[in-house]
Nucleic acid binder design. Structure first.
Lengths: 228, 228
DNA sequence: GCGACGAATTGATGTGGATCAAGGCTTTTT
DNA sequence: AAAAAGCCTTGATCCACATCAATTCGTCGC
């Protein structure tokens, strides 16, 4: 039974971007130390300030990372989907979690304890370079997020979001929102009301069509032009 | 002459946090590939969108990393002092620089080309782990910056900045600003006028004393209390 | 020490987006 | 199917901070 679980963790790990392509023996020690856990929708995984256990991998579901504010509000920093990891950066520092983590859907996750991760990195140069690359991507994303939040107005932020969520590269496309509008608004550092109003305004202008959580972008170029 | 320079580059590198403690032979290849350069005050080192050459190390002086906005304004993302590095994260991705880099003082820098850096990482697990740790620190700093900029008001941001700049851990201390007030204001995402006014307000309340670029914090606890 | 230019301050005014409030719509619960 | 609980939208109001404008201060070259 335990062997079964281990075996399956090994399987799952090997399919995650972070570990794909690693040799079986490199993975073995990690898989042995890894714990699988589940989180129900809205379940809190950890709070800002909690001691760091290790690196978390989202296998299925969705996890929201957010900064709590003094007045009970929160700013969503990142939304992690399948294949994404979180908590790794802070596992390398001797600091507690800087954000809250909460499942926004029924989720399946893996927890690779700090110690196991550090040991694995010491042995595998390959894994180290994957980690460097993953951290670099996150850093780049954060700069991009700062850019969106700090030097654009509300319309530009929403347009930016829509364009970045484009699945295809065509001039017309449809975006299905992967999170609630509140969550997206928070990521864009907008009040939910403002987000709603801006979407209304873009509809009004004939640039998009909102149907629940599906948004049809009719003309990418005109949309971009509208905000500049 | 060339040997002299190489030798000195090796010396300089070995004193940087990023490379301290590496074996001499691990450093040799890096030192051989590294170029030293100087930048005058206000000189632009690279623009957002330029092709990435490699990782830059500030040996002496100061470099400001900023995001340009459409209307010619800019948001300062980070200010690098001696021992800091920049451009490494983006060297691991196939993307151009996401920010502008400009010297804010006469500076001495090192440039480790992408290729040299990648080769060195492949050979040295030690260096890999230093890189991971450095990227993690940056990521953590960015979350902290987002927190400051996005979920605090102007007074809280300035108080936060003063407290974080504390050299000692006492209850009264003096902060010497390491950058112009405009630059600091931009880092805090405030207009220079607002920054000035907030400092005035804190002086008014008897919490700090501003004398040019030296700011005396009289009572850390009361200062923090004032903003909450 | 004088002139000049950029940095910083101070005052007056404007506005983008938050907040408060109320109602409609969806989804889950029973 | 009805009820409950969230989500989302729409409208009215407000305020924190930006912006514009005018001095003043500080520093550097000569």
């Amino acid at each position: 039974m335990i062997l079964e679980t281990r075996h399956s963790i090994h399987e799952i790990l090997s399919r995650q971007p972070m570990f794909r392509g690693l040799a079986a023996d490199e993975l073995r020690d990690i898989a042995n130390g890894t714990r699988e856990y589940r989180a129900k929708k809205n379940e809190i995984i950890f709070h800002r300030g909690d001691a760091v256990e290790g690196m978390h991998v989202v296998v299925m579901g969705q996890v929201k990372l957010s900064l709590p504010s003094s007045q009970g509000a929160e700013k969503v920093v990142h939304v992690c989907g399948p294949g994404n990891t979180f908590g790794e950066a802070v596992a390398f520092l001797d600091k507690p979690y800087p954000v809250n983590a909460q499942a926004t859907a029924e989720s399946l996750l893996l927890l690779i304890p700090k110690r196991v991760l550090l040991d694995a990195l010491e042995l595998s140069n390959n894994l180290c370079r994957k980690m460097i690359s993953s951290l670099s991507v996150r850093l780049h994303e954060m700069i991009s997020d700062m850019e969106t939040c700090l030097l654009r107005n509300s319309v530009q932020r929403v347009v930016c979001f829509l364009v970045q969520s484009a699945p295809e590269s065509g001039d017309a496309f449809e975006v299905s929102l992967t999170a609630s509008k509140q969550t997206i608004a928070s990521q864009l550092n907008l009040a939910p009301e403002t987000f709603s109003r801006v979407l209304g305004q873009l509809s009004e202008a004939g640039l998009i069509q909102v149907r629940g959580r599906r948004i049809a972008v009719l003309d990418r170029q005109r949309l971009i032009g509208f905000s500049g």
